[in-house]
């Protein structure tokens, strides 16, 4: 099986590849379209800024490549946000796979970014097999996806928002499974088995 991690200017690719190594998967880190198109599983990590990340993907023509994929695809953190319609961060159009817009947390009583472990609820799809309701996952983010038809997990931080999204073969998680202990590892194993 060939697992590819998309290399771009907003990746914490190394953490994700180490996490995959811990479950016995040697992933290829690449921005080559052919390698991505022929992979069995594709992961797009991301720690960074939305508009510059989108610009990079467009320059490399990876935006059209990603949208054309039919194999299981997992976006993590910014990777998930880039799969949505539009992001307030840098006011950029994104890939448009999910219906959601990405908005800034603007609740004065809460600290931004949200940083740390929060619970996920209303879990749907096999991505969460073996993961219990109210399990904690590690999050670091200032922008969030609203709830919608594609929501497969929710979290509360001043508001209920989407911490995971799914449409057909496309999955996105706001939290960092590669940094979320045993529960995060289970999620990565589930994704690899999809």
């Amino acid at each position: 099986m060939k697992t590819v991690i998309i290399k771009y200017n907003a990746g914490n690719t190394r953490s994700v590849s180490f996490a995959l190594e811990r479950i016995g998967i040697n992933a290829l880190i690449t921005d080559d379209a052919d390698e991505i198109l022929t992979a069995d599983k594709v992961i797009m990590p991301g720690v960074g800024e939305a508009s510059s990340a989108m610009q990079y993907l467009r320059e490399k023509k990876l935006d059209t490549v990603i949208c054309s994929l039919t194999q299981p695809f997992l976006g993590i953190c910014l990777g998930m946000q880039l799969m949505c319609n539009y992001s307030e961060e840098g006011k950029t159009n994104c890939l448009g796979i999910f219906d959601q817009d990405i908005k800034l947390f603007t609740f004065s009583e809460l600290k931004v970014p949200q940083m740390g472990w929060n619970t996920i609820t209303d879990l749907k799809t096999n991505l969460f097999r073996g993961i219990k309701e109210n399990e904690y996952q590690y999050l670091v983010h200032s922008y969030y996806a609203e709830l919608g038809n594609n929501t497969i997990a929710k979290t509360n931080y001043g508001i209920n928002y989407s911490t995971a999204l799914n449409k057909n073969n496309f999955y996105g998680v706001q939290f960092h499974p590669e940094k979320s202990g045993v529960a995060g590892q289970t999620l990565l194993e589930n994704f690899i088995k999809l």
Partner: peptide
């Protein structure tokens, strides 16, 4: 460390 631990 990064290879071996699964928390930040």
């Amino acid at each position: 460390i990064a290879k071996h631990i699964n928390i930040p």
